[in-house]
């Protein structure tokens, strides 16, 4: 498989008032292969969305580089990026805000193609609506006339209009009920199979991630702490944080294991050493002094921990 998107030592910092810096993403390196689905998981504020946006050039990185199809796209001007836009699209959690309430669905769907001066709009819209499981009668209707699940389908159709190679989906099912979530998860899987589009799938729901993704990257305070095949990682996590996340998922078949103590520390003042050491049940003195680097464990897996579980 060839690499489609690659990030090297990517960081994104926000300067706040009072001269403080918020390190939303620090030194992240990752690769997404063609047709592959990579899941970014972690608790809120750990930088998933920021990373997702930075990957496709929405907001310049503070340092580091992004390559798309072998070419560097970080540091390009907005104008130069326009050429790449059709090939990278984004789907957001809140599908209602992506649609202009005063424009018909047909209008909104046609817009990306109109902007990029493509022909055969009507034909493409019809085909995509079919693919996301809606009839073309929706075209003359307005966003508020749809349920959350239908809007999310339309949102996906909009993102696919230009035939992208990469889809970044930021919590696409978080606002949906389980039954609707199942429909969207199935849809995204089908689309990947039929169109071969690669996917960066941002979520905090491990069960959904397991169903959707090939690989998983677990983030904590702006850094990737574990990465690898999704089934292998969730079967036997190597990082204490991954295990804690997995344990925290309420399930019928076992009582809740003792939860992690405390909250995620502020990304403005992240702890020294391993950022997880303030909550880690396995922390040793070394953990608060020395930051563990990502290193390989097992096949195609990496973990950043001094005392990994594998």
């Amino acid at each position: 498989m060839t690499i489609l998107l690659e990030a090297k030592n990517l960081s994104k910092h926000y300067s706040l008032a009072r001269g403080e810096t918020l390190r939303a993403v620090s030194d992240v390196s990752l690769a997404v292969h063609r047709g592959e689905a990579l899941a970014l998981v972690g608790e809120s504020g750990c930088g998933k969305s920021t990373l997702g946006r930075t990957l496709i050039g929405l907001g310049a990185p503070s340092s580091g580089e992004v390559f798309f199809d072998g070419e560097r796209i970080s540091g390009l001007s907005d104008r130069a990026l326009r050429r790449w836009r059709p090939r990278m699209q984004m789907v957001f959690q809140d599908s209602s805000s992506t649609f202009n309430p005063r424009r018909t669905i047909g209008d909104t769907l046609a817009e990306p193609m109109r902007i990029h001066g493509r022909a055969g709009i009507a034909e493409r819209i019809r085909m995509l609506l079919e693919q996301v499981g809606l009839s073309s009668s929706v075209l003359s209707r307005y966003p508020h006339e749809f349920s959350g699940g239908q809007r999310q389908r339309l949102n996906i159709a909009r993102a696919l209009m230009l035939g992208p190679d990469l889809l970044v989906a930021d919590e696409p099912t978080s606002a949906l009920d389980v039954s609707v979530q199942a429909q969207i998860v199935n849809l995204l899987r089908d689309l990947r199979n039929s169109l071969g589009v690669a996917c960066v799938f941002i979520s905090h729901d491990l069960a959904v991630v397991r169903q959707m993704a090939d690989r998983i990257a677990v983030m904590y305070l702006g850094r990737i702490v574990e990465e690898g095949d999704v089934l292998a990682v969730l079967e036997a996590p190597a990082h204490p944080y991954t295990r804690a996340l997995l344990n925290a998922v309420p399930r019928p078949d076992r009582p809740l294991p003792p939860p992690l103590k405390g909250d995620v520390p502020s990304p403005i003042h992240p702890p020294q050493g391993c950022a997880f050491h303030t909550r880690c049940p396995l922390a040793q003195p070394r953990c608060s002094q020395e930051r563990p680097e990502l290193r390989p464990v097992g096949e195609g897996r990496t973990v950043a921990c001094h005392y990994p579980l594998l």
Partner: peptide, 22 residues
């Protein structure tokens, strides 16, 4: 409702059972 929840272990189904309509 119970079937629609993706499993956290065991084999990964090709497609999740869904409830048609709303």
């Amino acid at each position: 409702l119970l079937e629609a929840i993706p499993p956290l272990d065991g084999p990964r189904p090709d497609a999740l059972p869904t409830i048609p309509g709303r």
